[in-house]
Design a protein around this nucleic acid. Structure first.
Lengths: 225, 225
DNA sequence: ACAAAAGTGTTTTCGGTACACCCATGG
DNA sequence: CCATGGGTGTACCGAAAACACTTTTGT
C-alpha cells in the first residue's frame, strides 16, 4: 500500500467492447479485422486504451463511437480480465463492456474502415488473446439480464412486431419459446403499446407493430420473461 | 489504438476487497482504520496495487492474505470502479473482489495491526472515496448469488446447524424466512448430510449438525433458495 | 383455393407461500 | 414441570408449461 510500490506499476488499462446486434434473426457480434500489429490480420473485439482523465465508462463509449459512429448506446460493464499473460506482448488489463445496438444505424463507412464484420454468436472466428472468453461472459450476462430488465428493445427499431421480438429472445437465449405463452406474459406486464400499423413484409396477413412504453414500464418496473 | 497513446497512460490499477463474515447472527464486513495517508484515520476497504506480473485475481488474494492471514478463500470479482475523479489524489482504477470468510479463522494479530474492525452491513461507518458503493454493489451481487450457487457454506464452519444456516440467509438477504419452507427446500435439493451429532450450545434440545456434500451437489448442480 | 405466417385460450402441473403444533432437554 | 429453541406436514394459490385451431391475404 505504499506509494513506492505503485510508482513503478507498469500496467496498461484497456477497454474492449462486445457489440451485440440482431440481424437475420440471429444474435450477432461485431468484430474487427485487425489491420495493425500486434496480431495483424486476425479478428478481435473493438478495444482501446483508457485516457488519463477519462472515466472508464466514457472510454467504452468513445471506443464504440469510433467504430460505429453511434452515441448514447446502451452499454453495461461486464467484467475485468487481468491475467498477467493474457496479452503476450505487454501487460494490459482490460475491462469489457457489452453494447446493444441497432444494426441499421451503423455508419457503414466506419465498419468498412475497420474491416469489421458481424458474426453469429454460434459461429465465431478465431479471436486473439482471451476475446472469445470475453464474448462468452458478456453473452452469459446478457442472457441473464434480458429476462429481468427491458434492454432488448435497444436491439430493435422503435416499432417492432411480436414475431420479431420473439425471434430476438430466441436468438439471445438460444432456445425456442412458445408463441402463446410468450405473448401472454407480455400482455400481463403492460408496457407494450400496439399500433394501428402493420408490418406487411414478413407475411400475407401482416404483423402489428408495437412500441415499448418506458413510462408504463416505470409505473410497475416489473419485467420478467 | 496506437502505441503512443498508451505509452503516456498514467493510471494505477488497484484492487479492493469486500470481506464478508457472519458474526452475532449478522452479516458483517471487515474494514480497516487507515493508519496512513491519504485519508489517514478514516475507514476503508482493504486494498492495494496490482503487481506488474501479478494476475488480478492473485492480487486480490494477496491483499486478503495480508489482512487475514488466510489462503484459499472464496473470492469473486465484482466490478471495476473507474471514474476519473473517484480518488481525488491520483488516478486509480480499482477492481473489487468479494470474499467470504469464516471469522474464527482470522489471525487476530493481523486484524489488530491494521486496526481492522467488523461492521454490520446495516451500520457502516463513513468510508473513503466510493468504498460505500463498492460494498453496496458487492452486497447486491452476494444477495443474488447465494440464491443459486452454494457459496454460503464458506461463511460457516464445516459442521453447522440448520438454524445457523437459516440465520445466515436471513442476514444476507435482509428478510425473514419461514423455517418449514426453508427446510423443505433444502431437503428437496439433496446436498446436505445430517450428522449424528448435535450442537447443544444454542438450546436445550440441541440442533443436529449438517455438512455440505460437494459431490452430491455436483451430481445435480441444482441449487435454488 | 391454398400456402404461410399471425393471432388467440384453456387445462394441467409444479413450485411458492402461508400457517400451528409437538418434541427434547436442562434447569 | 416448564421454558426454550428444534423440528415437522398440509392446504392453497399463482405462475409456468403444454397444447391446436382460426384468421388474413397475396398469389
Amino acid at each position: 500500500m505504499d506509494r513506492a510500490y505503485k510508482e513503478v506499476q507498469q500496467i496498461t488499462l484497456a477497454v474492449d467492447c462486445i457489440i451485440f446486434g440482431f440481424n437475420n434473426n440471429q444474435l450477432e457480434v461485431l468484430l474487427i479485422h485487425r489491420g495493425f500489429e500486434p496480431e495483424k490480420e486476425r479478428w478481435s473485439l473493438m478495444g482501446g486504451f483508457v485516457g488519463n482523465r477519462e472515466d472508464l465508462d466514457a472510454a467504452a463509449h468513445r471506443i464504440l463511437h469510433d467504430l460505429s459512429g453511434l452515441e448514447d448506446v446502451y452499454m453495461e460493464q461486464v467484467r475485468t480480465f487481468g491475467k498477467a499473460d493474457r496479452d503476450p506482448y505487454e501487460r494490459v488489463v482490460s475491462t469489457t463492456y457489452s453494447a446493444l445496438i441497432l444494426k441499421e444505424q451503423y455508419k457503414a463507412e466506419l465498419i468498412a474502415q475497420y474491416r469489421a464484420r458481424w458474426f453469429s454468436i454460434d459461429d465465431l472466428p478465431n479471436l486473439i488473446f482471451d476475446h472469445k472468453q470475453m464474448i462468452v461472459s458478456a453473452l452469459n450476462r446478457l442472457r441473464r439480464r434480458v429476462r429481468t430488465v427491458p434492454i432488448v428493445f435497444n436491439l430493435l427499431p422503435k416499432k417492432f412486431t411480436l414475431p420479431q421480438l420473439q425471434l430476438l429472445y430466441e436468438g439471445i437465449l438460444g432456445e425456442e419459446l412458445d408463441k402463446r405463452n410468450f405473448r401472454k406474459k407480455l400482455n400481463t406486464m403492460d408496457f407494450l403499446v400496439k399500433l394501428d400499423e402493420k408490418d406487411m413484409s414478413g407475411s400475407r396477413k401482416g404483423a402489428y407493430y408495437y412500441q415499448f412504453d418506458e413510462n408504463k414500464y416505470n409505473r410497475t418496473m416489473n419485467f420478467n420473461i
